[in-house]
Amino acid sequence: MEKKLKDLKEQFLREVEEAKDSKLLSDLKTKYLGRKGELTNVLKEVKDLAVEEKPKIGKLANEVKNELAVIFSKTERIIKNKQSGGGMNFDPTMPGIREETGHLHPSTIVQYEIEDIFAQMGFGVYDGPQVESEYYNFTALNTPEDHPARDSQDTFWLEQGLLLRSQTSNLQVRMLEKYGPPFRGIFPGRVFRNEATDASHDHTFYQLEGLMVDKDINIGNLIAVMKSFLSTFFNTEVDVRLRPGFFPFVEPGFELDIKCLICDGKGCSVCSQSGWVELMPCGLVHPEVIKAANLDPKEYSGFAFGLGFTRLVMMRYKIDDIRLLQSGDLRFLKQF
């Protein structure tokens, strides 16, 4: 009896599946649930069962009946809707209607992303002047009087010995003066270089400087912070390496490379076959810079790094012409 019910149910399901119009469906209804339907017949047999079987089978038979009724009415509705268009008199395959939106600049999007990562490591976000004094842009950063970076081929000079900052490092000493140690901060912003423009160079571009000053900061700390940041940013475990590099305001100074994410270090055109991509200069803060902030280099040390932020944005979106970023061309900007 039990098996009979089960078979009946399965048979019904198969046939319902195949019923494509209401005529067939209505036939099915009669066949199973009608007064002389198959299920009704089975139900009738229940009264002939042994007394101890009756309640169990009776319950099961009713359950099956209800189940079939539900499936039947659901199928009936679907078929009806299909045939009549469900009362929806339109073509749903037409393109979706979108509300137009505005757009953040791609650099802003990436900047906020980076800021969030550093914020979680306890780095504040700071900003400062773009028209800067020679003192904060060079002198306080241990850059000698006759250093080529001060030349007019590299830096835009204004009247009264002022200049357009050539690096976001101009905030290193300013921020240490203002907030003192321990200090952890990043300084994103635009910088200016007196150089001819082409697809990969612009006179105005963006950097993101980072500075941490505390007691006993070492090279291992610098790499660990960089590796954490880069792995989060690129959303994959990033291998980094340091090699010697020279910048007046760090000692020792490094170039930080990451293992090429395109070829995984095997060598490709992006990394000029070397397996590594140069990403940012960094180093331990030079004692002269600590002193310029009126701190004792015996007590405090720190690290600094300068992310070529615009390049990172270009990498992220595969932008092949830097000038697009400041073109204000909506055809470009609407893609972000």
Partner: peptide, 8 residues
Amino acid sequence: YYEIYNYP
């Protein structure tokens, strides 16, 4: 609104 970056 579109955000624009311009030169100084």
